[in-house]
Design a protein around this nucleic acid. Structure first.
Lengths: 220, 220
DNA sequence: TTGACATAGTGTAGAAACCACACTAAGTTA
DNA sequence: TAACTTAGTGTGGTTTCTACACTATGTCAA
């Protein structure tokens, strides 16, 4: 029987998803230090002394990438003894959703230390971060089907076509426009703003908003 | 900004569910030591140096209660800074399912240091263990609807009435017998053994078995 | 042996959800 | 004003869900 020890190095990581160039992408940062110096990895870091796990996820994400104010939930805790070559590090993985409308300015920029990578074409990642991204994607796709989590990828105001496209990209399949709209309507969780989105030489689209912006509910 | 520290005390806990006296019950152990000495709590303990998280959950459960060989999955990680009055302890909570047919001998015995408590009538528990049980119950009930996890509460051979009763108890509602059986049949994951279960002065019931005993699949 | 008892086991019809499918509406631009 | 582009809408067939009640088959006791 192994002899327990009391402590482990404890960290959090966050998979930030958004849609970019019609693909589901995750935010990666370049590791500045060994192990895996120079490799891409998920934002994250060590949990502070008096810090909650979700607080740590939010803080490290903000400090490393400037991103904040996102929907975020705990995903799974990864703790294989050998997942870090130095010493035992256990990470509490989270995922977060960034509405693509917020991909402006700094956030949209990619640089040598930060990039958006399509989840189906990731570069080599440090540690087991590829597994974390895969599980997060799987969880997100599953929750699209039985919760209203998809709206957390929408900006304050959005069109139904935008919403549908986001669903299609995450699920990796096309959806029928009329059936999709019927389903969304039946949720009763959005309302018309009365405004219209105009873009290009075509009919404008109604803009909607969430009735309860933060709320994610189970459906069916 | 808080200054991160590298280490936390890391533990696992397990909510072992079974059915007893037609109620959903969870296995509790008496805390031998402070904090909360004498209070009831979930089995669990500190993670060993070279030990995986699930391994730790399995080991501590076995050592403290003698229970092993159960379906077990990770539930959620609880890490509020003040959840343990002594020092920071983060626990990776799991839940496990014990087929009631295995509630024989030692396991069925309750004593001063081990008991089965109905999840809707728990005694005062140490730490945040009541929240852990509540979340585990919620997760289990949800998974009954969209996976074949319910079969993991069945023994090697079982009747459809037993299966239905387990579902009813966990969900807290009665189910229609014909609809239930129709649904189970449509899963194609059990088969007749050819044997019959005889008990009492009434017609015997067919005994079934899982085609793939360990497998839990998503449905629909 | 037979009748009372208790649980096992079975089918159907109406309602609701799901799915496939194609055209008109309303702007912009040349 | 005509071409273009995306927005927006309804119906019918299929499948799934739900409500619902009786017969079957064993045991046990009189």
């Amino acid at each position: 029987m192994p002899i327990p020890k009391a402590t482990a190095v404890l960290a959090t990581n966050v998979v930030v998803f958004t849609i970019r160039d019609e693909r589901l992408v995750a935010l990666l940062v370049r590791r500045p230090r060994d192990p895996y110096a120079g490799l891409w990895s998920l934002p994250g870091g060590l949990v502070g002394d008096e810090e909650g796990l979700e607080d740590c996820a939010v803080r490290t994400l903000r400090d490393q990438t400037g991103v904040q104010g996102l929907y975020l939930e705990q995903l799974y805790t990864f703790g294989s003894p050998d997942r870090d070559p130095r010493t035992r590090v256990v990470t509490v993985a989270h995922f977060a959703l960034l509405p693509p409308a917020r991909l402006k300015g700094e956030l949209a920029d990619e640089c040598n230390t930060r990039r958006w990578a399509p989840v189906d074409a990731l570069p080599a990642l440090a540690f087991d971060h590829d597994r974390i991204v895969a599980m997060a994607h799987q969880r997100l796709a599953a929750k699209l089907e039985y919760s209203t989590i998809g709206f957390q990828l929408m900006g304050e105001r959005f069109t139904l076509s935008e919403l549908q496209q986001v669903h299609e990209i995450i699920l990796g399949e096309t959806l029928d426009k009329r059936n999709f709209r019927k389903r969304v309507r039946s949720l009763h969780c959005i309302e018309e703003t009365g405004d219209w989105y105009r873009a290009g030489n075509h009919r404008p689209a109604r803009l909607y908003r969430l009735k309860q912006p933060g709320a994610v509910e189970f459906i069916k």
